[in-house]
Amino acid sequence: MHLKRRDVLFGLLGFSLPVISSSCANRSEAPNLSSTTSPTPQPGLSAVRIGYQRFSELDLIRTRGELDRQLQQQGVKVEWSFFQSGPPMLEAMNTGSLDIAGVGEAPPIFAQAAGTQFFYIASTPRGLKTQDIVVPKTSSIQSPEDLRGKKVALQRGSSAHYLFVQVLRDRNIPIEEVEIVPLSPADARAAFEQGTVDAWSIWDPFLGVIEATGNVRNLNLGRDRRAFFLASQNFVNTYPDRVKAFLLEAKLTEEWGQQNARAIAQQFSEELKIDVAILEKANQRRGWGLLPITPEAIAAQQRVADTFYELAIIPKSIQVAEVTVPEQIYAQLYPST
């Protein structure tokens, strides 16, 4: 499925659908921050608005409640908003409805191309088995080459989208020879189970759920990747102390989560109506730990951006370094070890 850049631009406008090197910092415009941050509440902030996906780090922060309790003591509440995937979450940030978000590697690329004003503020690792392309167990599709002429469901602008285009590029399969069916995870599962699509590119916990049915076969195409915490540029500029408080709680939550995979699975099982064993497996195959935004992370994101541009999936070339917090300011925000 080949998209013209003009058509992609219209789609991006509506989506629908975490130390920085000096050279990178020089390509970012420094936010208007003072050299120190204040521990007292800043005027005008009554709430921190955070978007989360189910069974994500942000969902764990939400359910633990420590961030809410800390900010409530300072007269600030946390407003949590659920999103099924990253692209609509960043659409909400683009319209000024969110301050902080957590997404995979692809949504920030689409958001930056659409003009969303955000900063990368931290990252977390993802294991290679946390996403894959799956087919029905009885499908004749055995390898990526067999996807030619087939329909593949995925969330446009998601990490699953990037996995799919990486697989095609690595095997010199023109993207026009495979039909992308852009669907949300819930709609994609329905289409997949009904047989109206031939394959599904998807991530955990949706991947774990469909694997547990016993009716699918993995093509085993997943890759190590990163997920990112983002904050709107206005929020970083105006409320750096809140960003710092958020990152500290994220760091503590990641450390706790690494030691409590089963407890987390048990916690979310009832809420999500997903078996504990599925969620525990998803926890065990993902990575844990809050990581800073490093030159290596920026370079990896730039490769994502370049890939989408070269395939005319985003309408313009972007520089990821332009949405990174300058080094001297980032050092104040990121938790010390």
Rank of each mutant, 00 (worst) to 15 (best):
W203I: 13
D204T: 03
D204C: 09
P205W: 01
P205V: 05
F206C: 11
G208Q: 06
G208S: 14
E211C: 01
E211L: 12
E211S: 08
T213S: 11
R217E: 04
R217F: 05
L219Y: 11
N220C: 11
L221T: 06
G222F: 02
R223W: 02
D224K: 13
D224Y: 12
D224V: 10
R226I: 05
F228M: 07
F228Y: 15
F228L: 09
F228H: 14
A231E: 03
A231R: 05
Q233Y: 11
N234M: 04
F235L: 06
N237L: 06
N237G: 15
T238I: 08
T238V: 13
Y239N: 01
Y239D: 03
D241W: 05
R242Q: 14
V243H: 00
V243N: 01
K244Y: 01
A245E: 04
A245R: 05
F246L: 15
F246G: 00
L247K: 03
L247T: 04
L247R: 09
L248N: 13
E249M: 05
A250C: 06
A250Q: 04
K251V: 01
K251S: 12
L252Q: 14
E254S: 09
E254T: 09
E254G: 10
E254H: 13
E255N: 13
E255W: 09
G257M: 03
G257L: 03
G257P: 05
Q259L: 15
A261N: 12
A261K: 12
R262Q: 15
A263E: 12
I264Q: 01
A265H: 00
A265S: 11
Q267T: 10
Q267M: 13
S269N: 04
E270T: 08
E271A: 14
E271T: 14
E271I: 05
E271G: 13
L272K: 02
K273D: 11
K273L: 12
D275H: 08
D275V: 07
V276W: 00
V276R: 00
A277I: 09
I278C: 02
I278N: 01
I278H: 00
I278G: 00
L279Q: 00
L279T: 00
A282V: 07
Q284F: 02
G287A: 08
L291F: 10
P292M: 02
I293W: 00
I293A: 08
T294A: 09
P295E: 10
P295Q: 07
A297Q: 04
A297L: 13
A300Y: 11
Q301K: 11
Q301M: 15
V304I: 12
V304C: 04
A305K: 03
A305G: 08
D306W: 00
D306R: 03
F308T: 01
F308W: 06
F308S: 05
Y309L: 07
Y309A: 10
Y309N: 08
E310F: 01
L311M: 15
I313M: 12
I314Y: 02
S317A: 13
I318E: 01
Q319D: 15
V320E: 02
